[in-house]
């Protein structure tokens, strides 16, 4: 099911985001950057959960690793790595991707884990990581890392620090759009088709000759890298990293955003994060403690009544023509 207007809505939405600096001042622009960072994080989960069918309860693990990698690098605390923004960003994507890849290999190879088992194991992994970070004094222990420097662009002797909310907003916008395009491209490729095949029926995909464990592992690593990117930007914006972002609470929040927005559509998950977070900003003052109660019940309602999410039906892009037929599948099974 797809809406006639989904393509125009998608383009319109990104155009509106790009035009936001024309209407928003510094403070609100900073807020929007923060929301978009959560949005990137939500897309990473939507990719692995909506396309791969892997319910990851510990996505915050990768977000947190990315944030820590960025903070440690830019503060020059990783020996042998230059304390520059670019190195931080690269490391913040490679490290979580590696962790996700290794975790994926360990969990999916052979008679792998699936469904609820995967969820509980990833949740436990996030809890373990949080405990580790609390007890590791080099990376700040319970207090985390303070004074993470802002982004710095360097070209030889020329360099500029992105203190300005507008510049930071543009960086986040580019990152979000790039993450969206890369994930969308993957989703709309033969790889994505196989991934959805595995999601719908793993046994059948395996019988068709696909190494399902490898597909899932690669998808998991990609998702980890995107989550790490979000974490790195988060660390820069708040200038602060703490063990809490590795654990339970954030992992839950992102699940709620994605479930409410819609897990099968990237942009729906992105907007889900933006919407829930901004409603929270507005309502948590007036509703106070009742906000979380409402959110919990809304989440239950979304899961029970609208398993596809609130926004996914309006933003679902149709597949490229080549993938609507089944040629790619047939071709790769015969070779």
């Amino acid at each position: 099911m797809k809406s006639k207007y989904s393509r125009s809505l998608t383009v319109l939405f990104w155009a509106a985001l790009a035009g936001a600096p024309l209407f928003l001042g510094g403070w609100n622009l900073g807020l929007l950057s923060q929301l978009m960072i959560y949005g990137i994080f939500a897309m990473s989960l939507a990719f692995i959960w909506g396309q791969g069918g892997l319910l990851c309860f510990g996505q915050s693990l990768f977000f947190g690793i990315g944030a820590y990698a960025m903070a440690l690098t830019t503060k020059g605390m990783i020996p042998g790595v230059p304390a520059i923004t670019l190195a931080g960003l690269v490391l913040a994507m490679i490290l979580p991707a590696l962790v996700a890849g290794l975790l994926g290999l360990a969990l999916f190879k052979g008679r792998g884990l699936y469904g609820a088992y995967f969820g509980i194991v990833t949740l436990s992994a996030a809890v373990i990581a949080e405990r580790l970070a609390i007890n590791w004094s080099y990376i700040g222990g319970f207090n985390g890392i303070l004074d993470v420097p802002p982004l710095r662009l360097e070209w030889g002797s020329w360099q500029i620090e992105l203190y300005d909310p507008l510049l930071f907003f543009l960086v986040v916008l580019v990152a979000a759009f790039a993450a969206f395009l890369v994930l969308l491209k993957l989703e709309r490729s033969a790889f994505g088709t196989v991934l959805r095949g595995i999601r719908d029926n793993e046994t059948r995909a395996a019988f068709l000759g696909f190494e399902t464990a490898e597909y899932k592992t690669v998808a998991f690593a990609v998702s980890g890298a995107v989550a790490g990117l979000a974490g790195a930007l988060f660390a820069v914006q708040f200038a602060f990293v703490s063990p809490a972002i590795l654990g339970f609470a954030l992992a839950t929040e992102v699940l709620i955003w994605v479930a409410i927005g819609g897990k099968t559509v990237l942009l729906a998950a992105f907007i889900g994060a933006l919407a829930v977070k901004s409603v929270e900003n507005v309502l948590s003052d007036t509703l106070g403690q009742y906000w979380l109660l409402v959110l919990g019940l809304l989440f239950v309602a979304a899961v029970v009544v609208l398993p596809r999410g609130l926004l996914a039906p309006f933003l679902n892009l149709s597949l490229p023509p080549a993938l609507r037929r089944s040629e790619p599948l047939k071709k790769s099974t015969t070779t």
Partner: peptide, 20 residues
């Protein structure tokens, strides 16, 4: 899988109810 999510939401709501 949805039972995990739904019970998770219930747990959030119940906990918040107790806090209130």
């Amino acid at each position: 899988l949805d039972t995990i999510l739904a019970t998770w939401g219930i747990s959030l709501a119940l906990k918040q109810l107790v806090i209130i």
